[in-house]
Design a protein around this nucleic acid. Structure first.
Ligand SMILES: [Zn+2]
Length: 360
DNA sequence: AGCCTTTGACCAGCG
DNA sequence: TCGCTGGTCAAAGGC
């Protein structure tokens, strides 16, 4: 609707009425890489071991958020510098949900670089409730004027977690793009080096697919402008044959990712770096490891979607760190079933919003 | 040659 | 039941 037309479809109306089309597919590409005004130097790096769920608990984040002025500015609408790359692998969340609900696997992870609405809300079943409570409380403290509810999705979904950080944080963090690679969750915790981020970042623009580089291969299967979103939402699916993981994200005109949502978890290792080696070899390696580890311990009932989770935490600096308080393997079974959150410490520090959804 | 992006249309869920 | 919205499919084109 607005003038964003520059991108591609902009009609929020929907499909039938207004073809968002336009004409050339090239538009999307135009904004590619070079356009990212983000400074990649210091970014929030999320080490390969970051899991989306990790964001769930992020006291730190909240604290930071507090700094936000907010209501007035409240409009975090305009993202400035943020780049978020997430990978998909809501380990803990997933498990939790599955267990709790008894549903198959539903995981949805949402990462929002710019918190449009600054609020943290988490709806979880019993288990999560605890966590939710925490989050909400924090929110309130921060004076988030916003209601706990961010999106309908949350409500609808059985379990979802959403964390949002304020733009401020982002800025503070440094104008760095926040890259989150959750998939990799290498419990190893390699250290979250920001270096990695840079690589990814740079690759993101280069690669044909501008989707965030999380180490997996994604194929875009749709794009739509959702009502509440300012920008069109892109739908990506993991290219692996057996993998049903989906990723949705919204990008601003600048090419910055404003929101990322992951659904499901990869049950396969990441592809070799060869394809996306450009992004960062380091990540790949780590990722690999992680994949295996996580896979091994799968739960029996779990299906190819739900996986164990690894405790990762994001550093207050903006970097994500793996909090290995417990072993991921071990933790899986027990943790997810009972109280993943309680056991695991997740710290969310990025200025984005995290959304975990279970829908599978 | 293969894979991916683009894009309109179709479908399902919900109020 | 209708309209709206979000999500997905599939054809076409590009790299
Ligand atoms: Zn996958």
């Amino acid at each position: 609707m607005d003038s964003n037309t520059s991108r591609s479809e902009v009609s929020d109306c929907g499909d039938p009425t207004r073809p968002e089309s336009g004409g050339g597919g090239a538009r999307y590409k135009l904004m590619s890489p070079a356009k990212l005004p983000i400074s990649r130097s210091a970014c929030i790096t999320i080490p390969p071991g970051l899991s989306p769920t990790s964001f769930l608990e992020s006291p730190v984040l909240l604290s930071n958020v507090k700094a936000e002025p907010s209501p007035t500015t409240g409009t975090f609408t305009k993202p400035r510098t943020a780049l978020g790359s997430l990978s998909s692998t809501p380990y803990s969340a997933t498990t939790v949900s599955s267990t709790a609900c008894g549903e198959r696997k539903s995981d949805c992870f949402e990462f929002r670089p710019y918190a449009r609405s600054n609020m943290v809300s988490a709806d979880i079943n019993h288990q999560r409730s605890t966590q939710c409570a925490q989050v909400q409380s924090q929110c309130h403290s921060q004076s988030f004027a916003s209601p706990p509810l961010v999106k309908g999705e949350m409500e609808v979904s059985t379990n979802e977690l959403s964390l949002s950080a304020s733009l401020h944080m982002l800025t503070s963090v440094a104008s760095a793009p926040a890259e989150v690679d959750s998939d990799e969750l290498n419990q190893t915790g390699l250290s979250s080096s920001g270096l990695q981020a840079s690589q990814s970042d740079h690759r993101a623009g280069t690669a044909p697919s501008m989707s965030s580089d999380d180490g997996y291969n994604w194929r875009k299967y749709g794009q739509k402008h959702v009502k509440g979103s300012e920008f069109p939402r892109s739908y990506y699916k993991c290219t692996h044959p057996n993998c049903e993981v989906k990723k949705l994200f919204e990008r601003s005109h600048d090419g910055q990712i404003t929101e990322i949502i992951y659904k499901g978890t990869h049950d396969h290792p990441k592809p070799q770096p060869s394809r996306r080696y450009a992004s960062g070899s380091v990540l790949s390696m780590q990722e690999d490891r992680f994949d295996k580890s996580s896979s091994l311990p799968n739960q029996d009932d779990k299906s190819p979607g739900a996986y164990g989770q690894v405790p990762h935490a994001i550093e207050p600096n903006g970097a994500l760190e793996v909090s290995t308080g417990a072993n991921d393997d071990t933790g899986e079974g027990a943790e997810d079933d009972d109280d993943p959150f309680s056991k695991r410490r997740y710290q969310f520090r990025t200025p984005l919003k995290l959304f975990v959804m279970d829908t599978y």
